[in-house]
Amino acid sequence: MSAARIEPIGPERLVAIDGDVPEGALAGLAVLRLGPREHLVLGAEASALPPLGGALAIDVGDAHEGWSLSGPGAARLLAKACALDLGLVRPGEATRTAMAGIPAILRRVAPEAWELRVDRACATWVEAWLRSLQGEC
């Protein structure tokens, strides 16, 4: 079994948007759709977004910590922490799930490349949890 590479994403700008967003307002941005009215915009600041109608946009970059997990063993590593059927998350898709019991945002960038973001308060614990399982793949 092969190992997975775990690399921190580092500080990033994130905007959480709650509410219906006007058609096309988020065009050209890297956006994760996490719920019917819930979006996470990567690499942007709330003040720099176009008008969003009644939706609430809040900077949440400091509230998250993320890692990129890649390699043939990444899916197996995630399967140890997460009960979601990862085969149903296709490249380009993202979802909310629980990772080691903690709410997490999982994004599949490519067939063997994933991004995991969790609440920053749990970051140290989650990273240690993942790395402890890395070798056992």
Partner: peptide, 12 residues
């Protein structure tokens, strides 16, 4: 009710 909510516990 029209209510928007974003948790920010760890943001601040």
């Amino acid at each position: 009710l029209d209510v928007r909510l974003v948790p920010v516990t760890s943001q601040w």
